[in-house]
Design a protein around this nucleic acid. Structure first.
Lengths: 248, 248
DNA sequence: GGTGCCGGTTGATCTAAATCAAAGCAAGGC
DNA sequence: GCCTTGCTTTGATTTAGATCAACCGGCACC
């Protein structure tokens, strides 16, 4: 199978696939021109660590394509994923010198990077950027808090169902396939990465995925391709309010 | 013992105890005057629910004094605390109509509330407020992510030690008592609230608190008053990098 | 055509924390 | 004083998930 080339890098903000969702979403064309001055693209291969916790950060940026994870690790090796970075998500924190988490590419990835200093200066005089960043940060905070409920109170089966539901929902919004009811998508994560996300061991993840399959909650084609025949059933298994889970 | 009166409510921003830490921290005096137009104080008693998840919010605001919790509850009653609100913390989300979490007063509480609509309008034209709110939200996001590691990967004993360390650290920054080494403070939470924070049962919390006491990591005076003889020891028990835990 | 290796599955056993149950203790009301 | 109520502790038992261990299947590489 041919590997998709990661080298199709946009150079104009106009045809950027994340133009309307990233930090720059609210910018006018003159503001985009300013951003253009301080931006550069950079690509990473699957498995590569983009940023090590503790590194000094000289840039911030947006994920243009691909998927990365944000993880925290204890001295003895226990690791917990604390965020999943998808296209349009923002990486780095203005006003902070060093990275607080490891950022690892799960697939090949393209980043749109801004040199940190000039970006901070621009943010100070461009409310559109700060406003959008606030909005995105509030969304991430909500996601993190929802995840706290998953980590703290849900059973292994509910955790797996929750993760699949999140991926399904996100996939539906990104790929905008109008076909309701039947959802098909690929799990972007290995069993181990899923375990790190859910606070489980990879064996438990494997067992619970198999159990959900046996019970007809999901169907599997190979190890990664998932079909969800009944999204509300999945939400029930996740322990969520079934009405709260409307797509989009 | 006399109950502290919650009725000492500031009316001037000038002598407000959270003036330099809340959303309004960066505001100039003319901006404070504008805020003054749309603000009002409101107090709640210990145990009262300030906001129910799903309620429409007609205000946002800052905690002036007292402590509140942010909790999420599943249909079957399992609950997870997703935030602890201390003086200067912000409540509510600009741009969102309804509350996502329950907010419950743990002690008597005084809030400085802003009517939501005018606050949003003011935020749009006052970068100082949006900037400060962004900063605060980023801090909360970091705290939430640190908590994800606690919930997902730490043992019961480590969870308790982590919680005590957080409360100790916060108490040290708030009360600014320069005495290093020996920390004394009150646990503001019941065993049940601690359990909800940590994703444990209240029995496990009680057992682990006793165990930490038996092992000399903490000392107890009554049920609530805690002394930490050696903060680094506590951090070790929490599984944290001992160097990462410097006060302030 | 073997031989590693990576990601995944499956099974047996162990254990930390949950659950079930009872009782202690301080504060407040009558 | 006595009783209730809310919070906490302590004990016995159960269990969900971790841990330890073996093995499977595809795929790259010599």
């Amino acid at each position: 199978m041919l590997k998709e080339k990661a080298s199709i890098i946009p150079h104009e903000c106009g045809d950027c696939p994340i133009r309307h969702r990233a930090v720059c979403a609210r910018c006018e064309s003159d503001e985009l021109e300013q951003l253009d001055q301080i931006k550069y693209y950079r690509s990473y291969e699957s498995g590569q660590t983009l940023i090590w916790s503790g590194d000094t950060m000289d840039f911030v940026g947006s994920v243009v394509s691909g998927i990365a994870t944000l993880t925290q690790t204890m001295e003895d090796g226990r690791t917990q994923m604390v965020g999943l970075l998808l296209p349009s998500d923002f990486v780095g924190r203005p006003g902070r010198a060093s990275a607080a988490y490891d950022v690892v590419a799960v697939t090949d990835i393209v980043m749109c990077c801004f040199r940190k200093k000039p970006f901070e200066e621009m943010m100070a005089r461009t409310p559109h950027i700060a406003q959008r960043l606030l909005e995105m940060t509030l969304d991430e905070l909500d996601a993190a808090r929802e995840w706290m409920l998953v980590l703290g109170r849900k059973t292994a089966r509910e955790k797996i169902a929750s993760l699949i539901a999140i991926i399904a929902r996100r996939d539906a919004t990104l790929s905008k396939n109008g076909t309701r009811g039947l959802l098909v998508f690929d799990l972007p994560l290995t069993r181990e990465a899923m375990a790190d996300y859910l606070g489980l061991t990879l064996e438990t993840v494997s067992r619970q995925v198999s159990a959900l399959k046996k019970d007809g909650v999901i169907e599997l084609e190979g190890k990664r391709r998932v079909t969800v025949p009944d999204f509300n059933r999945l939400l029930e298994e996740a322990g969520d309010d079934s009405d709260g889970g409307m797509l989009i």
